[in-house]
Design a binder for these strands. Structure first.
Length: 299
DNA sequence: TTCCAGGGTAACG
DNA sequence: CGTTACCATGGA
């Protein structure tokens, strides 16, 4: 890929790009970015323009963003840097989290295995909600299949050097679809209805990341989200976690978390909700990070 | 073939 | 309010 411009990013101390890459490369089924040669490539939309960027490590814990398209203007380069900063959750101060581990053997073990791992987010609210809805109650492999069909049917792409890079579909594109069209991709009736409802609300403007961000608390964001059909506690917390960057978000009903905890402690059966509440009470304000670190123990 | 998957809704008591 | 049946489809 031809490099048109480079931009340096200096992440905080408690960050290891290797961990981010490990997460990004956890599956071959992801259609919204590619990982190759320790570099992640992603197409994003900035000011209506498709911008293909890559992120890799440059020297000691520095990141370098490269642009593989027309040379973006200064303001767009800054927004791209901001995007990556948010995507990798580089704004979070992990020092208190790691301090908490000093007197906690469970956290110590988790952090030892994943030091420098940050929650890789989904900054786009429509994508975050849609992906959560798609993933409800089906195995992840099939969830990726559905997402890929959805993206490649309704999303835009850019082709560079024979590779296609995709954007997640916009609410505007999806809002006009019918349930049957999504069922054609093997969405269930309910999933199709839920995704369409979210798209319509976003297209109409009553639902937006900006509006929700202006609320006073993350719990208010959750209250607003669960008013929408198809969005329950798990989905709302998942989205608080990966889109709104709430470290206290806690998708406690998550099957992946249950399996991870079961395996981590070699339990005979999955932990109950009460047991999880009790356990996580040791990690106040870091529920999202502990959940994420547990997830990583599965792959 | 059976079990279950990064849940949610609606009906019921 | 807490519980339960049901949804719906593919993966392993």
């Amino acid at each position: 890929l031809k490099i048109k411009f480079e931009q340096l990013l200096i992440p905080p101390k408690e960050f290891r790009f290797k961990q981010t890459l490990g997460y990004l490369a956890r599956t071959n089924n992801e259609c919204l970015y590619k990982v190759k040669n320790e570099t992640v490539y992603k197409l994003i939309l900035l000011h209506e323009k498709k911008v293909l960027l890559s992120v890799s490590e440059a020297g000691e814990n520095k990141l370098i963003i490269r642009f593989h398209c027309v040379i973006p203007e200064e303001s767009i380069r800054m927004e791209a840097a901001q995007y990556v900063w948010d995507w990798f959750d580089l704004n979070r101060d992990l020092a208190p989290f790691y301090q908490l581990a000093e007197t906690d053997p469970i956290l110590q073990k988790l952090i030892e295995a994943h030091y420098g791992l940050r929650i890789v987010g989904i900054p786009d609210l429509f994508e975050a909600l849609s992906w959560a809805i798609i993933g409800q109650q089906i195995n992840l492999t099939f969830a990726y299949t559905l997402k890929t069909r959805f993206v490649e049917t309704y999303g835009e792409h850019m082709e560079v050097d024979g590779n296609k890079y995709w954007l997640f579909p916009t609410p505007a594109k999806i809002a006009g679809l019918s349930v049957d069209e999504l069922k054609g991709l093997q969405f269930s009736q309910k999933k199709a209805e839920y995704v369409l409802e979210v798209a319509r609300r976003m297209e109409e403007g009553s639902l937006s990341k900006k509006k929700l961000s202006q609320l006073k608390s993350f719990s208010q964001i959750e209250q607003e989200l669960v008013k929408i059909r198809g969005i329950g506690s798990w989905t709302a917390n998942y989205v608080r976690m990966i889109c709104f960057r709430d470290p206290t978000a806690f998708p406690i009903a998550d099957v992946g978390l249950h399996n991870a905890v079961k395996q981590f402690f070699r339990l005979d059966q999955k932990p109950s909700i009460e047991e999880l509440k009790k356990m996580f009470a040791n990690w106040p304000n870091w529920e999202a990070y502990v959940t994420y670190y547990f997830w990583r123990t599965l792959y």
